[in-house]
């Protein structure tokens, strides 16, 4: 059985400056495996590379090195019009499909799946004024029960967001300055020093 998602030596480097004096402005590196279905909470400061990682997983952004395997398939070698049968990127309220490939689809592989296996939710609006949070969480759970892998990217700015992550997610990924750290459960997440610093006041004192 293939793992559901693998980032193998995955790297994305952004450079700036002229051709002669180019410097690296941002580097994202990821190496992790998620074996089966579940809900993964992803957090990290703005600009840390969360959205870039999502784009690499859905195949809408091309890695500088390494690869992403969804159910064993290299997403960047799958036909652009079938990549959404492996992974889908959801922006706040709609889905985004934007693929480019220098290789024509004829020379690329089929997805080998009829429906998306990995669902990446980029900062869903957990508005505390209404009850839509509940329907969103039910939806994530339903996807997991249908053997999908759900990523929930949240930049927590109130305690309630932590509560949501704790309730919904069975494992975590912390992204900071392009470094991707998998953490197996909520307690490990809260014991991870960079996470504690990042969450700061939100931890209050009651948690951990």
């Amino acid at each position: 059985m293939q793992p559901m998602l693998q980032a193998k030596g995955l790297e994305k480097v952004y450079k700036r400056g002229s051709l002669l004096s180019r410097t690296t402005s941002f580097r994202l590196s990821a190496d992790f495996t998620v074996d089966g279905p579940g809900i993964v909470g992803m957090m990290g400061p703005n600009g840390s590379g969360k959205t870039t990682l999502f784009e690499l997983i859905t195949g809408s952004n091309t890695p500088s090195a390494g690869k992403v395997l969804v159910a064993g398939r290299d997403i960047h070698k799958v036909r652009t019009d079938e990549r959404d049968r492996l992974a889908i990127h959801y922006h706040q309220s709609y889905q985004v499909r934007h693929f480019r490939s220098l290789t024509p689809n004829l020379l690329l592989q089929p997805a080998g799946s009829d429906f998306p296996l990995v669902h990446l939710f980029d900062e869903p609006q957990f508005n505390t004024q209404d009850g839509y949070i509940g329907f969103m969480l039910d939806f994530f759970h339903r996807l997991r029960d249908e053997d999908r892998l759900v990523f929930l990217c949240v930049h927590p700015n109130e305690r309630l967001h932590l509560e949501i992550l704790q309730e919904a997610c069975d494992r975590f990924i912390f992204v900071q300055q392009g470094n991707v750290t998998p953490l197996p459960d909520y307690q490990t997440l809260l014991n991870h020093d960079p996470v504690r610093t990042y969450l700061g006041n939100l931890l209050g004192g009651r948690v951990a």
Binding site: T128, Q129, D130, G131, I133, G134, F135, L137, D138, L160
Partner: peptide, 12 residues
């Protein structure tokens, strides 16, 4: 739904 109830009660 638990979260709908909490929002109705103004807990959120």
């Amino acid at each position: 739904n638990k979260w709908v109830q909490r929002s109705a009660l103004g807990e959120l």
